[in-house]
Design a protein around this nucleic acid. Structure first.
Length: 1135
RNA sequence: AGGGCUAUAGCUCAGUUGGUUAGAGCGCUACACUGAUAAUGUAGAGGUCACCAGUUCAACUCUGGUUAGCCCUACCA
C-alpha cells in the first residue's frame, strides 16, 4: 500500500526524514558508497561560531549543499569536511567588551594567558546553535571531524606555508615573506597602529575643520625648467594645496596628473603684492582668480585693502607630463641631505591626481600618505628624515611616535604636537594657543611662500579608543610579496569558472591587476603567531616551519645559551613568545611579536585542514584543488582571494575550479537586515514554520543566488503551494488509485514506451527533456534555471496537462494495458522529478521517494535493482536519454494545447459550458505538415474541448484567405533601409498575391530605387478569419468553432450535467469512489430525451446499477441549469 | 573617490546572436470546471522596459552618459 495523507505538512516531513537520516546514517552512506578515486572536491569556508547563524547563512549553505548533493547523485564521492574560523579581531573585540577591558589592559590587568583563554572559550559559544541550523536546514557537512583554526596542527600547517613563502624568492632574490614598512593608520595618543576594520567602526570619521594652505614652491631656473621662464629673474612658483600643513616640512615632491592641463599665470603674491608667476591646473584657475580681474592693468595692488582685486594674465598652458622632472627649492629646509638635493624636490607624475579641489598639484610627503609613498617610490624619490644608520634608505620620520615634531625642526617647531588634539586641555584652552598647522601656515606667509590660507572642513578618521585624530604613519610590518605573483594569479584566475562571471573578471580580476603586497602583521594576541625569530640587531633571523624545527631550535638554544626551555604545548601567545632561539653566530633570537592576518588562516585551509604536509599527503593531493566553493560575494577579496593567493604562490595552482558567490539577503523592502531595524529574519522560526525545503527552494528559484534576495515569507508560501502542493496532490491522486487497483511498480516489467499512448510518450519526452536541461544548468552552476525548469515541468506539463487529461484513465474501469501504462508513466515522472529535486529539496524528495518505493523495496533488494536504496540520496541520477525525447511529439502537443486554449476561449466568449458538446472544430491550414501533426493529437483535442469532429480548411476548400507579414529577420538583411516600405507592401498583399508567391516561389517587390525578390521564407503567413464562424487566433494557429446546437447535442449536454450532479450527490453522501449506486431522478420533462438516449452512459459514469425516473424524489432540488431544477437521490446498492 | 552588481506589470522575476503583440507567477476582477477539490482552467485590467544621447532600416537588447539602490575597496592632497 502507498501511504495516503490528509494534508501537506512540510515541517513534519523534515522531522520524519531527519530522524531517518540520522538512524540510518544516510549522509555517511551517501559519501562512503562512492569510490574514493572519483572525487568531487568541496571546501567549506569556515564560519565563526561566536555569532549566531542568520537566514543569510541558510542561503549560502543551500548553494553549497545543492552542488555537493548533485555531484553525489552523479556518482562522485564528495567529502565535506566542516570547519571553524576561530581567530581574529572581531573575537578579540567582543572579549574585550565582555571583560570590560581595553587593548592596553592586556598583559597588565589581565594576563595574555587568561585573555587568550577567554577568546578560546568564546569562539565556540554558538556552536550548538550552528550545529542545529546545519541539521535542520539539511546541510550535509561533516561536523564530527572539523578543522579548527586554533589547533596546534592547524597552526603548524600555516607555519609551513609561511616558511615556503619565506624561502621562495623572486628572480631578484627577494623573499616572498619580508619585513617592510607601510603607511598605516596610527594613533599616537594610543601609541598603536589601527586596522582598517577599526577605522570602519561607526563614528570614526568625523567632520573636523583644519587649516589648509596653498603653498608656493619656487621653481629652479635650469635647462629642464627653462620653458617656464619668460623673463630674466622671474619668480615662478608651483601651487600645491594641503589640509595637513604639518606634513610640509616632509615634502619631497609635487605630484601632477600627466594628462591634466596646467597654466602658468603671471600675477602678484596675494599677501604682499610682489610679482610672481604661478603654475596650477587650468580647471582650478577659477577657484583662485576672478575672471573679471584678468583685464586689470598689471600693477601691484594695495595690500591694505581687505579684498584686493589682483590682476593676472595666463601666459601659457602645459601638460602635466611636461612639468614632470622640473625641480624646485625645498619649501621648509629644516632637514635635507645631498641625496635629497640631488633626487628629491621634483615634480613627478601620479594617476590619482584630480582637479576636483586644490590646485591640481599634490604636495607629496611619502611618510604620511600611502599614495604619496607609492608615487615617490615609483619615481625614485628618497625619503626625508633623521638619518638612520641601520637603514640609510629609511630615515626616521620628522614626527615621532607620540605625534611630535623632532628636535631637528628647530626651536620654532621641534617638540610641538602636530595635531592640537594631542596636547593636554590646559594647553589648548590658552587663548594664545595656536595649532601647529596654523603656525606653519603663518611661517609660510611671512616667508612669502603662502598663496592662500583658509579653514577647511572635511571628514577625518579618529581613533575609536582615544577619540583623537589618526595620523598616517610608517610602521614596520611583515608582508607577503603578493605583487610579485600578480601576473600568475591573473593568468590562473582566467581558468576559474566564476559564477557570476563578472565577479571573476570584474571585482576580482581588477583587484588582482592592482595587487599590492599583503600586509600580514597584526599587533594582537589571539591568532597564529608569526614564526619568525630575530636577533636584537635584526641582522639574523629564521623562520620556523614546523613544531619539529621549533623543538630542535629550542634544544640548540638550550645547549648554546645555557637555557632550559621546553617546547610550548600551545603554540599561541604568550607561551611562544617566551621561546628564545639561537642564531648561527650564537646570538639569542626572539620572536617577532606580530600575529598574522586571520585571512591567511582561512586561505590556508586546503592544506591545514589535513595537517598537510605533516600528515595525510594522499588525502591532500586527492583533494586539491577544489572543484567547487561558494561563499558570499563579500568574500571576493577575503577568502576567495586568500585561497587563490596562497595556492598560486605556494603551489602554482588554482585553489578552486568553480566558485559561486552569492549576494546578500535583504528584507522584503530591500533593506539590509540589522538588529537596530528589527527586520532580522530568524532562520529557526522560518524553518519551523515553512520547512527547510520550501525555504531552500524559494531562495534558489526566486532569483539567481548572486543577485541580492529580497526575502519575503509570502514567497516561501507560494513555493509551498505551487510546487510542493502540486506534487503532493499528484502523489495523493496516484496513491489513491494505485491502492484501489493494488498496483505497484515492477522494475522487471516496464511497459514498452512505443506502446504507450501519445500523451504518455509526450510527458516522458518532456521528462527527459527536463533531465537534459536540468543537468546542463546544474553543470554550469545555474541553480535558479535548474529549479525553474523543474517547476515548469511539474506545474505546466505534469499537473496541468498530463494529469488533467489522464484522470479518467486512472479511475475508469478495470486494470488493462492503458491503465498500466498510465500508472507506470506517472510513477516514472514522479520518481525522476523527485530525483532532480533532491539536491535542492532533500527532505520532501526523500519522503516521497520512500512513499513511492516502499512497497517494492524488499523485492528490489533481493533483485539488486535500482529501487533497493532506502533513500533517494543514495540513488544514481537518471541518465540523459535522447531516445525518449521526441521533439515532433512535443511540438504536436504544443499545437494541441494552443488549439484547446483557443477553443475554450471561444466557448467562454459564447457562454457555452464545456459540458455542452459541440459539433465541429475547423482548423485553417497553412501547410500540409500541420495536418499530419494535429492528426496525432486529434482525439485528445476533441475530448478536451468536448467537440465531435475536427475538420481542416485547406486552400482547395475555397474558404481560406491568407495574408502575410514581413519576416523582419530575413528581410532586414536583404532590404536594409527599404525595410519599412517592403513590410508595408507585404502587408497589403491579398490572398491572390500570397498564392502567387507560394506557387512561383518568389515575388518581386519594388521599394525606393530597388527591387527585391521575396521568397516564402521572407513572409510570415496567417489566415484571415472565416466569415460566419467564431474564431480565435494565437500566432500562426487559428481555430473556428461551430457553435450551433441541435436536439441531440443539447440532450447529451444535459446528460453530462446530470452525471455531474449525481457525482456531486455521491460526494455529498461521502460514498467511496468504488461504491455502486441506485439513482432516482425526478421525471422532469426537460430531461426526458437526455435520459432516454444516454441512460447507459450516465449509469456507467456514475457507477449506477439502476437509474429510475420517479414523480417524487426525496431531498432538495438540484439546479441543472438556469431553467431546470429537479430532485436527485442516490442510494447505495443493496440498501 | 574607484570598481562591481541591480533597475522590465502593484509585488517577485523571465526575456536567447538587435527583428515589429515584451512574458510568467503572485495579487486584483469576472467567469468556468469539478472523482486531484484548502486543487484547476479561461478571460480582463495592469508597462513612457529608470532617464538622456548615439549606432541601426529596426534598440528592453549594443555603445556612451546620467540618476537611484546595494556591495567591495579607499588617508584623495
Amino acid at each position: 500500500m502507498y501511504r495516503e495523507f490528509k494534508q501537506l505538512n512540510l515541517p513534519a516531513i523534515d522531522a520524519e526524514i531527519l530522524e531517518f537520516w540520522q538512524q540510518e546514517g544516510i549522509f555517511e552512506q551517501s559519501v562512503e558508497q562512492r569510490p574514493a578515486g572519483k572525487s568531487y572536491v568541496f571546501y567549506e569556508g569556515p564560519p565563526s561560531a561566536n555569532g549566531k547563524p542568520g537566514i543569510h547563512h541558510v542561503m549560502a549553505r543551500t548553494v553549497k549543499d545543492l552542488f555537493c548533493r548533485y555531484n553525489t547523485l552523479k556518482g562522485y564521492r564528495v567529502d565535506r569536511k566542516g570547519g571553524w574560523d576561530t581567530h581574529g579581531l572581531p573575537i578579540e573585540l567582543q572579549v574585550e567588551k565582555e571583560l570590560g577591558i581595553t587593548t592596553e589592559d592586556i598583559g597588565k590587568k589581565i594576563s595574555v594567558d587568561d585573555y587568550n583563554r577567554a577568546c578560546r572559550s568564546t569562539v565556540m559559544r554558538y556552536k550548538d546553535m550552528w550545529d542545529d541550523i546545519t541539521r535542520k536546514m539539511g546541510y550535509w557537512v561533516d561536523l564530527k571531524n572539523p578543522y579548527i583554526t586554533f589547533e596546534n596542527e592547524y597552526i603548524e600547517s600555516v607555519w609551513s606555508l609561511l616558511r615556503r613563502l619565506y624561502e621562495k624568492k623572486t628572480p631578484q632574490g627577494d623573499s616572498y615573506l619580508y619585513k617592510g614598512f607601510t603607511i598605516q593608520p596610527f594613533s599616537p595618543a594610543a601609541g598603536t597602529g589601527l586596522s582598517s576594520h577599526e577605522l570602519n567602526l561607526p563614528g570614526c570619521y568625523k567632520e573636523v575643520t583644519d587649516f589648509s594652505v596653498v603653498a608656493m614652491f619656487r621653481v629652479r631656473h635650469e635647462d629642464q625648467s627653462a620653458f617656464l621662464f619668460d623673463e630674466e629673474g622671474e619668480d615662478v612658483r608651483i601651487l600645491a594645496w594641503t589640509t595637513t600643513p604639518w606634513t610640509l616640512p616632509s615634502n619631497v615632491a609635487l605630484t601632477v596628473g600627466p594628462d591634466i592641463e596646467y597654466v602658468k599665470v603671471k600675477t602678484f603674491s596675494p599677501y604682499n603684492a610682489l610679482p610672481v608667476s604661478v603654475v596650477l591646473a587650468k580647471d582650478r584657475l577659477s577657484a583662485y582668480f576672478n575672471p573679471e580681474h584678468a583685464e586689470l592693468p598689471m600693477q601691484p595692488f594695495d595690500t591694505t585693502e581687505k579684498k584686493p582685486a589682483i590682476p593676472y594674465r595666463i601666459i601659457k598652458t602645459v601638460k602635466g607630463s611636461e612639468l614632470s622632472g622640473v625641480r624646485y627649492e625645498q619649501l621648509l629646509p629644516y632637514v635635507t641631505s645631498p641625496e635629497l638635493e640631488a633626487r628629491a624636490f621634483r615634480v613627478i607624475p601620479g594617476d590619482f591626481v584630480t582637479t576636483e579641489d586644490g590646485t591640481g598639484v599634490v604636495h607629496t610627503a611619502p611618510y604620511f600618505g600611502a599614495d604619496d609613498m607609492r608615487v615617490a617610490r615609483d619615481a625614485g624619490i628618497p625619503m626625508i628624515g633623521i638619518p638612520n644608520e641601520k637603514n640609510p634608505d629609511l630615515p626616521f620620520p620628522l614626527v615621532d611616535r607620540q605625534g611630535r615634531f623632532v628636535p631637528e625642526l628647530g626651536e620654532e617647531f621641534g617638540g610641538r604636537y602636530v595635531k592640537a588634539e594631542y596636547y593636554p586641555k590646559e594647553v589648548t584652552s590658552d587663548k594664545e594657543f595656536k595649532p601647529t598647522d596654523l603656525l606653519i601656515a603663518l611661517r609660510l606667509k611671512e616667508d612669502n611662500k603662502a598663496f592662500k590660507i583658509e579653514k577647511y572642513a572635511h571628514n577625518y578618521p579618529h581613533c575609536w579608543r582615544t577619540d583623537k585624530p589618526v595620523l598616517y604613519y610608517p610602521l614596520d610590518s611583515w608582508f607577503i610579496r603578493a605583487s610579485a605573483s600578480k601576473e600568475r594569479m591573473a593568468e590562473l584566475n582566467k581558468t576559474i569558472n566564476w559564477q557570476p562571471e563578472s565577479t571573476g573578471s570584474g571585482r576580482f580580476g581588477q583587484w588582482l591587476e592592482n595587487l599590492q603586497d599583503w600586509n600580514l602583521s597584526r599587533s594582537r594576541y589571539w591568532g597564529v603567531p608569526l614564526p619568525v625569530w630575530r636577533t636584537e640587531d635584526g641582522e639574523e633571523e629564521i623562520c620556523v616551519g614546523s613544531v619539529e624545527e621549533l623543538r630542535a631550535g629550542i634544544e640548540k638554544a638550550n645547549t648554546q645559551l645555557g637555557l632550559s626551555q621546553q617546547a610550548p604545548a600551545d603554540l599561541h601567545r604568550p607561551y611562544i613568545d617566551e621561546v628564545v632561539l639561537v642564531s648561527p653566530s650564537g646570538k639569542p633570537m626572539r620572536r617577532e611579536l606580530d600575529l598574522i592576518d586571520v585571512w591567511f588562516d582561512s586561505g590556508a585551509m586546503p592544506y591545514a585542514q589535513w595537517h598537510y604536509p605533516f600528515e595525510n599527503k594522499d588525502t591532500f593531493e586527492r583533494n586539491f584543488p577544489a572543484d567547487f566553493i561558494a561563499e558570499g560575494v563579500d568574500q571576493t577579496r577575503g577568502w576567495f582571494y586568500t585561497l587563490h593567493a596562497i595556492a598560486v604562490m605556494c603551489f602554482d595552482s588554482v585553489a578552486y575550479k568553480n566558485v559561486v558567490s552569492n549576494g546578500l539577503v535583504l528584507d522584503k523592502e530591500g533593506n539590509k537586515m540589522s538588529k537596530s531595524k528589527g527586520n532580522v529574519v530568524d532562520p529557526f522560526e522560518t524553518l519551523a514554520a515553512h520547512g527547510a525545503d520550501a525555504t531552500r527552494w524559494y531562495m534558489m528559484s526566486n532569483a539567481s543566488p548572486w543577485d541580492n534576495l529580497k526575502f519575503n515569507l509570502e514567497g516561501i508560501v507560494e513555493t509551498r503551494n505551487k510546487l510542493f502542493g502540486t506534487l503532493y496532490n499528484t502523489y495523493n491522486f496516484f496513491a489513491l488509485y494505485a491502492n484501489l487497483d493494488g498496483w505497484t511498480i515492477d522494475e522487471q516489467q516496464i511497459f514498452p514506451y512505443e506502446k504507450r499512448s501519445e500523451l504518455d510518450r509526450w510527458i516522458i519526452s518532456k521528462l527527459y527533456s527536463l533531465v537534459a536541461e536540468y543537468r546542463r544548468e546544474m553543470d554550469q552552476y545555474e541553480p535558479t534555471r535548474a529549479a525553474r525548469a523543474i517547476e515548469n515541468f511539474v506545474d505546466d506539463h505534469l499537473s496541468n496537462w498530463y494529469i488533467r487529461l489522464s484522470r479518467r484513465r486512472f479511475w475508469k474501469g478495470e486494470m488493462n494495458d492503458d491503465k498500466e501504462a498510465a500508472y507506470q508513466t506517472l510513477w516514472e515522472c514522479l520518481q525522476v522529478t523527485l530525483q532532480l529535486m533532491s539536491s535542492l529539496a532533500p527532505f520532501f524528495s526523500d519522503w516521497m521517494y520512500r512513499n513511492l518505493t516502499a512497497p517494492v523495496r524488499e523485492k528490489a533488494r533481493a533483485g539488486n535493482t535500482p529501487l533497493r536504496h532506502d533513500s533517494i540520496h543514495l540513488t544514481d541520477l537518471v541518465a540523459p536519454d535522447a531516445s525518449k525525447i521526441d521533439e515532433t511529439l512535443e511540438k504536436r502537443m504544443d499545437y494541441a494545447q494552443r488549439i484547446c486554449s483557443l477553443a475554450l476561449s471561444i466557448r467562454k466568449k459564447e457562454k457555452l459550458r464545456v459540458r455542452q458538446p459541440l459539433q465541429k472544430l475547423l482548423l485553417p491550414v497553412l501547410d500540409e505538415s500541420f495536418i499530419a501533426e494535429v492528426d496525432g493529437v486529434r482525439e485528445l483535442i476533441l475530448s478536451e474541448i468536448n467537440v465531435k469532429e475536427l475538420e481542416y480548411v485547406t486552400d482547395s476548400s475555397g474558404l481560406l484567405k491568407k495574408s502575410g507579414k514581413a519576416n523582419f529577420k530575413t528581410l532586414g538583411a536583404k532590404c536594409g533601409k527599404d525595410m519599412k516600405a517592403v513590410a508595408a507592401i507585404i502587408e497589403s498583399w491579398t490572398d491572390t498575391d500570397i498564392s502567387r508567391l507560394e506557387k512561383e516561389g518568389k515575388l518581386d517587390v519594388s521599394a525606393g530605387e530597388n527591387t527585391y525578390s521575396i521568397t516564402p521564407e521572407d513572409v510570415v503567413l496567417k489566415t484571415e478569419d472565416l466569415p460566419g464562424w467564431k474564431t480565435a487566433t494565437d500566432g500562426s494557429v487559428t481555430v473556428a468553432l461551430d457553435v450551433t446546437l441541435n436536439d441531440e447535442l443539447v440532450a447529451e449536454g444535459l446528460a453530462r450535467d446530470l452525471v455531474n450532479r449525481i457525482q456531486n450527490a455521491r460526494k455529498d453522501k461521502n460514498f467511496s469512489v468504488t461504491d455502486r449506486i441506485y439513482v432516482k431522478l425526478e421525471n422532469h420533462p426537460s430531461i426526458a430525451a437526455a435520459v432516454a438516449s444516454f441512460a447507459d452512459y450516465i449509469k456507467s459514469e456514475v457507477l449506477a446499477d439502476e437509474l429510475v425516473l420517479e414523480e417524487q424524489v426525496a431531498g432538495d432540488k438540484v439546479e441543472l441549469n438556469d431553467e431546470i431544477s429537479l430532485g436527485i437521490e442516490v442510494l447505495l446498492m443493496g440498501l
